[in-house]
């Protein structure tokens, strides 16, 4: 990377928003996406308020005259393609699927912003806190992640990795699910996991979320330790996931006490 450090950086994806805010020099980051100020999705709402907000549309991003645009791998291809045709450098980040990805993403973001040192330091600090949290476990209680529409996440997802790091085993693995997929309610009930972890409800009723109030799920929830997770700590591969891991510690203790 012999390029000079970019001076006007625009991020158009929630996860690159947060990585960039962590590592950018003062004045280097110009704009973050609208999701970064959504308290349900973003862990860094306060910081994000200080930036211009974009809605990940090519035209408004171009109008900010960036010399580097940060996007997610699944950001709209049309928008990213348009910006590239306009001669703007766009770097995309794949969503993190493991704890290792997070350290790597921190280092890469540091390098892109011309702040290798800051990136390496953040990655090292993250690894250190992570290994402190990775306690020795004798027994892994089984937990299921259950979201709207009966969606569950397996071991090859960030949420699945958070679960493993916190000393649980994942029910989805039993069902042969490694990525994200719908797990029929019947299956969840039959596996009878020791703990149930579900997403927080958004405002506004929907029938997608109604499954979380199904009598069978209610019964599972009442009869064993359960937790509602705050999405913002789970969505993006940033050091914030350590908060999610810490949050699961209590749940794990309860699950283990339950049998004593």
């Amino acid at each position: 990377m012999a390029d000079p450090a970019p001076r006007r950086v625009v991020s158009m994806n929630l996860c690159t928003d947060q990585l960039a805010m962590l590592l950018a020099a003062k004045g280097q980051l110009v704009s973050v996406s609208d999701l970064a100020v959504d308290p349900r999705a973003s862990a860094m709402v306060e910081q994000a308020r200080g930036y211009t907000i974009n809605h990940a549309r090519a035209e408004e991003v171009h109008a900010l005259r960036p010399d580097l645009v940060l996007a997610g791998q699944y950001s709209s291809r049309a928008s990213v393609g348009m910006l590239r045709r306009l001669g703007i450098r766009v770097e995309t980040f794949a969503p993190a699927r493991s704890m290792d990805d997070i350290g790597a993403a921190l280092e890469r973001m540091g390098a892109l912003l011309g702040r290798e040192e800051a990136g390496k330091r953040a990655a090292a600090r993250f690894e250190e806190r992570l290994s402190a949290l990775r306690a020795e476990v004798e027994r892994r209680p089984e937990a299921a992640l259950y979201y709207a529409n009966g969606y569950t996440l397996g071991d090859k997802t960030l949420a699945g990795q958070i679960l493993l790091t916190a000393g649980f085993s994942n029910t989805a693995a039993k069902a042969g699910i490694t990525g994200g997929r719908v797990m029929p309610l019947e299956q969840l009930v039959m596996y009878a996991p020791e703990a149930l972890i579900s997403g927080t409800s958004y405002s506004g009723e929907t029938r997608s979320e109604a499954i979380l109030d199904h009598p069978a799920v209610e019964l599972l929830r009442r009869s064993r330790p359960s937790a509602e997770v705050r999405d913002r700590d789970w969505i993006c591969g940033t050091p914030q996931v350590l908060r999610a891991v810490e949050g699961l510690g209590d749940l794990r203790r309860k699950a283990l006490e339950g049998e004593g």
Binding site: A148, Y202, T206, R207, S208, E209, P215
Partner: peptide, 25 residues
């Protein structure tokens, strides 16, 4: 127009219908 991110996906349900995971309620 719903503020809920799941709402837009439900267009499929209301147009096509399903009996999955209904309860006695």
């Amino acid at each position: 127009l719903s503020s809920n991110p799941f709402a837009a996906n439900e267009i499929v349900f209301w147009m096509m219908g399903s009996l999955a995971d209904r309860s006695m309620m």
